[in-house]
């Protein structure tokens, strides 16, 4: 006889509660492996990183040992202009690329939502950029924006928009152009598909009703499509902002963070500290900061999304 059963008998509870308890225990038993895996896979590395981040750990200088140094790594990051620069670049990149992707993705989704011949083919074809590995895409765009013989320069020269080839990667302003374009090119399809799924969930009769009430195309979009699409937009925003905040491979392949450090995002700076300079403590502190920021962003979004979902159920 198990403990819970005897407890149930002692309390004189009805047998149904006892069954419920048993089921609850069984449920816990069943999810335990999953919870354990999550703890091992997600929390353990995180805890380890946090532990590293409060220690001095420099692979290149073993003679310094591995002493506990409290918040020194964090303070160093906060006092480092390169860190703030990287954070600013990341925010700029995230805002610009995600904004563009949302607008373009919405346009594409609206277009694909119409019935036309070959719609299935278009929907499949639009995913091609998204399927290309990011590093490959990065190199592709690097070649396209090459100073001499790059297709972008050649085209702009032919159109008379440029008088001489532009070396895109040596000015901060121009170096951002290929980075953002490549990201928009690559991930707009993903946003478009998410939004398309949202569009298809909107009941067609609502549009009919709106039409009868005399709403024009803009009115329908403004008062029917947008409000009902909000959850899908938020989901797309969460995914894309978090991804954009951790951008690494695209910049690594395209600009390497240059010129100077003008396009260096926080993930590349962290990579540099961790794997180039082998400063595990400092690099871990940077990782924890990036984690905290993305986690905070996710929380804000989830709160917004949660409110939106319950709000739309009214």
């Amino acid at each position: 006889m198990s403990v819970s059963e005897s407890e149930g008998l002692l309390r004189g509870a009805d047998p149904i509660r006892g069954v419920e308890r048993q089921e609850a225990r069984l449920a816990w038993g069943l999810v335990l492996p999953a919870v354990g895996t999550i703890l091992l896979v997600a929390l353990f590395p995180l805890a380890w990183t946090v532990w590293e981040s409060v220690h001095l750990h420099d692979l290149r200088m073993p003679w310094l040992g591995r002493p506990f140094i409290g918040a020194a790594n964090y303070l160093e990051a906060l006092g480092d202009p390169r860190f703030w620069g990287a954070l600013g670049h990341t925010a700029f990149f995230a805002a610009t690329s995600v904004g563009l992707e949302l607008i373009l993705g919405l346009g594409l989704a609206l277009a694909m939502n119409r019935a036309f011949r070959g719609r299935g083919l278009v929907r499949a074809a639009i995913l091609v950029p998204w399927a290309i590995p990011t590093v490959v895409a990065g190199l592709l765009w690097r070649f396209m924006f090459a100073g001499e013989g790059g297709i972008v320069n050649e085209t702009l020269l032919d159109l008379g928009l440029l008088r001489e080839p532009l070396v895109w990667f040596i000015e901060a302003e121009t170096a951002w152009v290929p980075v953002i374009l490549a990201d928009v090119w690559k991930t707009t399809p993903f946003v478009a598909l998410l939004l398309l799924a949202g569009l298809q969930n909107i009941d067609a009769s609502l549009y009919e009703a709106a039409r009868i009430d005399g709403a024009a195309a803009w009115g329908q979009f403004r008062h029917v499509t947008l409000p009902l699409l909000k959850p899908a937009i938020l989901v797309a925003l969460i995914f894309r902002t978090l991804d954009a905040f951790r951008v690494f491979d695209l910049v690594y392949a395209l600009t390497g963070g240059g010129p100077g450090t003008s396009t260096e995002p926080i993930a590349l700076y962290t990579f540099n500290a961790l794997l180039q300079n082998l400063r595990f403590g400092y690099g871990s502190a940077l990782s924890v900061i990036v984690f905290a920021i993305t986690f905070g962003l996710a929380l804000i979004y989830i709160r917004l999304l949660g409110a939106e979902l319950t709000g739309s159920k009214r």
Partner: peptide, 23 residues
């Protein structure tokens, strides 16, 4: 010096900033 690579990393950034006319 044992930390040459880190020193070089700093120097590279500032040299490149000067040569690209950011500084």
């Amino acid at each position: 010096t044992p930390i040459y690579t880190q020193l070089s990393d700093i120097l590279q950034v500032h040299l490149h900033r000067a040569l690209t006319r950011q500084r």
